[in-house]
Design a protein around this nucleic acid. Structure first.
Lengths: 160, 160
DNA sequence: TATTGTTATACTCTATAACTATA
DNA sequence: TATAGTTATAGAGTATAACAATA
């Protein structure tokens, strides 16, 4: 099936296209390997979270809010490395779902404190278990030691 | 700077939000670490390629075409894990830039053979050096041995 | 009937500029 | 004047359905 072209113009062609770009510079690029691995892991997560009508970024936001209750939207934007307008959309969704709330309670009346609702706290407990399991499933080819290694290497890149 | 909220409603709050989601489940998720690392590496690459009016996917396509000259658009879609309509847009751009050509030369008259132009081959040589350097720069925090380790782990995930 | 390439379309993500209300 | 949040908008990336030409 993979041998049906390149008979006419070039008959000195290397080989039929493989299912993956093997033997090219792409194999040596961390960036390309990152993209392909991230795509795969993210897809599993997206599938899992879709049952809850949530996206990965929304889950991350819930986690960050739980860890820093009362934080401002600018904080959330900075921590998640997204832009303030994206935080607005994201929080509107979480508020509409009853998982988080904006509370106008700061000395600075321009800002809100962001908190999880009781329902949000409960939901997040369940979500964390599901997301952790999804992460393990997507990386089932790795041993626990390899996972720890990988986390360390990725964090070096992020901080370096 | 990181200590200016949470004085009113909750004074028993943990701590001011850090610059990164440290101490949460996000730190344990391969998926999250992948996303953040990929974002950083990709940004450097995008910046480098923008001088050539190219996107990362277009560079990848040039590499795959060089490795399998004469391949069909369906092959390219499968190898790069993108959808056929995206291949159309991508190839239109590469043809317009004079880097690649569609040649109607197959026994199957529905398909095209895709080839690099002479200019494309020349350009790609230069691009490969630049992209490789960008990849090394983005992962400057890693040793050569760590890079090889990381590549191996990422490919395990992709294939697993 | 199935496949190659294409068009049209839509939905998400991302980024920026401009507005408001506070400071 | 500067900042927090918001709105509007536009550009990519991604996915699907439907079509024309060919098999």
């Amino acid at each position: 099936m993979a041998r049906k072209n390149a008979q006419t113009l070039e008959d000195t062609l290397p080989d039929a296209p493989a299912a993956e770009p093997v033997g090219t510079i792409l194999d040596e690029l961390i960036g390309y390997a990152l993209r392909r691995a991230q795509l795969k892991v993210a897809q599993g997560l997206i599938d899992e979270l879709s049952s809850f009508d949530l996206r990965p970024a929304q889950f991350s936001a819930l986690v960050v809010i739980e860890a820093s209750p009362g934080l401002m939207q600018t904080d959330l934007a900075r921590i998640l490395a997204i832009e303030p307008p994206q935080v607005v959309t994201l929080l509107n969704k979480l508020e509409k779902m009853g998982l988080a709330v904006r509370v106008r309670c700061k000395p600075d009346k321009r800002s809100y404190g962001i908190f999880l609702s009781k329902a949000g706290e409960t939901q997040l407990k369940q979500l964390k278990a599901i997301v952790k399991q999804s992460d393990l499933t997507a990386t089932a080819a790795l041993s626990d030691e390899e996972r720890a290694q990988l986390l360390g290497l990725l964090q070096k890149i992020r901080q370096g």
